[in-house]
Amino acid sequence: MHGRIRTWGPGALVLLPTVLLLGYFVYGLIAWSFNTSLTDRHTARKGPADYVGLENYTNLFGEERFLNSLKNLGVLTVAFIVGTLIFGLLWALLLEKGVPGESVFRSVFLFPMAISMIASGVVWGWLLNPSQGDEARGLNRLFSILQLNFLENSWWTAGSRWTTMMSIALPAVWQLSGYIMALFLAGFRGIPPELREAARVDGASEFKLYRHVLFPQLSPIALSALIILGHMSLKLFDLIYAITGPNQFRTEVPSIYMWNTLLRSDQAKAAAIAIVMLAVVAVLVIPYVAYTVRQESNE
């Protein structure tokens, strides 16, 4: 008996603070938010609130503004993930082939990640100025100087949901591609050189080497990248807020809508939006966690 405590006791003791803190500040508060989302606490007034069941949720899903924010989020997530993966992989491939001054390029590509999103959002807000022709500013100005006038566009301020949210995804892609590049580069470097040599000895072309030998080994990294990018996109707030400001219907995503709702002290509705966001993230993360756990137990 005594011996058994000795084996698991110290471990449990070390874990205990984490379990308590996480239990309260993460899971406890999630439960609290969920509880609030079931009430009619629509003002900042203190005191008891009545339970209204799922009314806040049914109201949300019957609301054009919320559905619009969800659709915006979907488009943003797709554009952001695809863009970031393409650029990240492309840069990793280029650096992996070996360029002079590789470390310089690596830093250059990684640096945007070091900038806070609110700061880059302010600057991108200027760059994405929709003026065209003689008054063009920002990127449109650059296009007109380079005689690429056909590329000038109104960015997020006009056009379909896709053009709008792709313009918003652009700064996020710029910011995170370097990070994905670093992930893939680490992946390439982790593949034993013997494998490449063996493939070359067997007469594989360069394309086949990548297609059949190297890329399959990168799939765990691609999956991690997907999860990280996915949940970042779902939580994206500061970048969009800095570029377009609050109450901008065209670019509103649930996180911004939640902030707006909280600003008007509608706590129950804000909590409901938060829980919907959590559910969307969970859809992404839980299969990943399950997959990882299964992988580990297989090993």
Binding site: P246, N247, F249, R264, S265, D266
Partner: peptide, 14 residues
């Protein structure tokens, strides 16, 4: 109120 203003701003941006 703040809330009404918030909704109106959203409608106008739309």
């Amino acid at each position: 109120s703040l809330g009404q203003n918030n909704d109106i701003l959203s409608a106008i941006s739309q």
